[in-house]
């Protein structure tokens, strides 16, 4: 089949690039694209960023949280990450440390600065609201390809950009979602939009990712994420700034002792 295509006209050759194999199922194609998205994301070694989270309630009232995030890439497993809270002031200095895993449950610790206590916490709670926002813990955790199965739906145009529309099904049994529909930019291989369906399979939230910045000519990162809750009409805007990559952090910067040394 392939040989026939190669000898045929240019039109057919172009077609073979966008549809690589006729034998590929929708499931395989979805997985393949998410592996490409993940590969595009990989190889950064480590990163740090500042985050500003703006919670907007139904009447438009805003409240702001500020955090810093540190991530360490781990070969053949989920990343190690740390979130340090700066605002609101009553949680200043509080930090979380997460070892995410592709197969076993994630490991997670919480640092309480007033007590100087590092507390191991359950990582089971994926559906809970992160800092009272519209982001659940599972939305902001390390996104590992293995945590979902996939199904390719269609090619579409999203605001004039050619995208892959792919459905993802969480493999984690305590996920708050039955499925996620992602719109992946075909050219840059980044997610532009995700729709989250709740346990009753009703649209719960829509995440829009924008202002992508190309870092070190390698990794695309969104500078802005907006999560709108379709059911409560509340929304949260998450903005990233001061991205730094390959700063030379190691496992030692992601130990429970390092939580006590954050400033």
């Amino acid at each position: 089949m392939k040989a026939a295509l190669l000898t045929s006209a240019t039109v057919a050759l172009t077609l073979s690039i966008t549809t690589p194999s006729y034998a590929q199922t929708a499931e395989e194609r979805g997985l393949e694209i998410f592996e490409q998205v993940s590969a595009q994301n990989d190889g950064f070694q480590d990163s740090t960023a500042s985050m500003t989270m703006t919670l907007i309630n139904r009447s438009g009232k805003k409240s702001v949280r500020r955090m810093r995030a540190k991530t360490l890439e781990v070969a053949n497993d989920g990343d190690k990450s740390m979130t340090i809270f700066d605002e609101p002031a009553d949680v200043k200095g509080t930090a979380t440390l997460t070892y995410s895993h592709t197969k076993e449950a994630d490991e997670q610790w919480l640092y309480l600065p007033a007590l100087k206590r590092v507390k191991r916490i359950s990582s089971k709670n994926k559906t809970g609201a992160f800092m009272g926002s519209e982001f659940a813990f599972e939305d902001i955790g390390s996104q590992e390809v293995e945590k979902y199965t996939y199904k390719y739906l269609s090619e579409e145009q999203l605001d004039g950009i050619a995208v892959h529309k792919i459905e993802a099904y969480p493999t984690y049994k305590y996920s708050g979602y039955t499925r996620l529909i992602s719109y992946i930019d075909q050219e840059r291989l980044v997610s532009l939009k995700t729709e989250f369906y709740d346990r009753k399979d009703v649209l719960l939230k829509t995440l829009t990712l924008s202002d992508y910045v190309h870092h070190d000519d390698k990794n695309w990162r969104p500078a802005r994420m907006e999560m709108i809750n379709a059911q409560t009409k509340k929304s949260t805007i998450l903005e990233f700034s001061d991205y730094k990559f390959a700063t030379g952090m190691t496992d030692k910067d992601f130990s429970s002792n390092s939580l006590k040394k954050l400033r």
């Binding site: 359950s122 089971k124 709670n125 559906t127 809970g128 609201a129 305590y174 708050g176 346990r199």
Partner: peptide, 12 residues
């Protein structure tokens, strides 16, 4: 023992 998201709410 923790019950997370009791009755489809955000309450633990």
């Amino acid at each position: 023992y923790s019950f997370y998201g009791v009755a489809e709410s955000d309450i633990d």
